[in-house]
Each structure stands twice: as C-alpha cells, then as structure tokens.
Write a protein that binds this DNA or RNA. Structure first.
Lengths: 135, 135
DNA sequence: GTACTCTATAACTATCTAGTTTTAGAAAGA
DNA sequence: TCTTTCTAAAACTAGATAGTTATAGAGTAC
C-alpha cells in the first residue's frame, strides 16, 4: 500500500476487524487479550491488526504490568473526514448538516453506544456554494 | 479485501491514484484517456483503478462514441463519512462544526477547486453530548 | 530463581494487489 | 471494407496482506 498518511488511514479502515477494534477502543483502553476476545481469530492476528492501526496513527500503546494497553487516537480520522468532506455537496443535496444526517442514520439503523445524546435543531443559513457538475 | 461495502469504499480510497481520479471526476465526467493523461502509468492500470472505484460504487460509466465516460457517484462517500463521524467528538475538542474545521483546513493549506465559496459564521448552540472516554 | 501471564516475532502459506506488455474488440470515419 | 481510436482483457511479475502455529521475551508473583 502507499505510505502516505491518508492511504494508511483509509487502508487501516478497509478491514471490518480493524473497524471493530476501533469501535471497541472508543469505549476505552483495552489489552490485546480483551480486544481479541470477541473474535474467532488468533492472538497474533489481532496483534498484527493493532500494528496496522498503530502505523496509521489510529492507536497508541502503553504498558500496564505484563499487558499492553491500546488507546484510540482519533486525530487521523479527522483528516480522513476532512478529505471526504470535500465531496459533501455531491451527496448532501439538501445541504443538511453532517450531524443531522448522522442523527437520521442512527435513528434508522440503530444508534451505536458512541453517539451524542440528542438530535439538534436545524439551523437555517444561506449558502452560496457554486454547484459545478457535469463536463 | 473484505467484500462489505464500507471495506470496498475505504479500500478504494486507500490509494493516492484513485483519490486523484475521484478529485478529477468531481470536476465532471471524463474518458479513460483523459483520466490517464496526468499519470505516468499505463492505460490498463488506470482502467483497473476505475474498476476498483466502480466496484466500490464510487463511479458509474456510460458509453460516448468509442469512449467510456466515468462519472463520480458520491453516495458511498456519505456512508464512509457517516462511519467516521461517530468519532467526531473524539477529535472535535472544541465542538466546532465540520464545515468550519474544513474551512480552516482549506485556509491553511490552499483551498481545492472543489470547496464551497465562503466560510460561514459560527453558530453558537448548546450541546448536551455526554463525553464518555476512558475505561 | 522459577513459574506464570501476556504479547510480539518468526516462519510459513495462500491470496490479493498494482503494475507491466501484448492483444482483442467495439465504435466511428474514410 | 479498411483503418483508426479507445478501452478492456489476458498473462505475467513482484510485492503486500491476512491468516496460521510455534516460540521467544518481558514483567509479575512467589
């Protein structure tokens, strides 16, 4: 894979096991054993996935006794989101805000433990975005 | 790679060539030859990248004469953004809105042709998000 | 020091990836 | 029809990826 940061981050996210690990880590730090528990996969396999996440900057690690704690680092996810957001106006037809979209998505297929508590009210604002599409 | 949609999308984005293709397609439809021009890479290589993008649902194609037009489909990017946004409150320390962050990013390292025209004003609002972090 | 626990590394396999060059096929033009 | 243009497919290569089992090493407890 390409070694630039964005490629590493997207590459790390391109695996359901690693995405699941991130979701778990969003609840708090965890040891390798704790992280491996839900998966029908060997411990070294999980260690490798953690290494991929670490290389992408999505996880940092510390020692606690004989165990190693993994901790979520969300910074790179911001960069990834920023990249994606350039395309926002291609799919956001009605210009609703991202967190409102999110709220809707969560309402439709079950809110994960992570989500903010309440849906916020729509804020009306003008927008002079030039919609350029087509050749 | 895993075959679920999200994995395909993130996997497609995990390559700088493919991200560049998407950026180009954001300006409008293009033929394979047009897309291949800026790259020092063979035409079949570009065709393969386009196939990856197509499999991820990021591109649809149509025929025009002897050429094939590729068109950006941003829908899957919304899903990817939605996944990422679950981590928003991990990096969005001061709770600024995504598009404001974007504006700042664009201001700092050069606005791409894609971006909305103006930075919008900060809207003050309350937020009762429960910040849950740590074990 | 010895035993135990937790995790990383080594070594290996199978599969996927990204690229190449060459070739075939489809559509348009003369 | 014959030629040209544009793109996809075939066949191949090198290297990365995701998993395995077995083992080594580091830290704690005794």
């Amino acid at each position: 894979m390409a070694s630039d940061t964005l490629s590493l981050v997207f590459g790390a996210l391109a695996d359901p096991t690693r995405r699941a690990l991130l979701l778990r880590l969003a609840e708090g730090e965890a040891t390798v054993a704790q992280l491996a528990a839900p998966f029908s996969m060997s411990q070294p396999a999980i260690s490798k996935h953690l290494k991929v996440l670490e290389c992408a900057g999505l996880v940092t690690r510390s020692q606690r006794g004989t165990a190693r704690l993994s901790r979520l680092e969300a910074e790179p996810l911001r960069d990834a989101t920023a990249w994606l957001a350039r395309y926002q106006h291609f799919w956001q037809e009605s210009h609703e805000r991202l967190d409102e979209l999110l709220a809707a998505l969560q309402a439709s297929h079950g809110a994960p433990a992570l989500s903010p508590g309440t849906t916020r009210k729509t804020v009306q604002r003008t927008r002079n975005t030039t919609q350029r599409r087509g050749a």
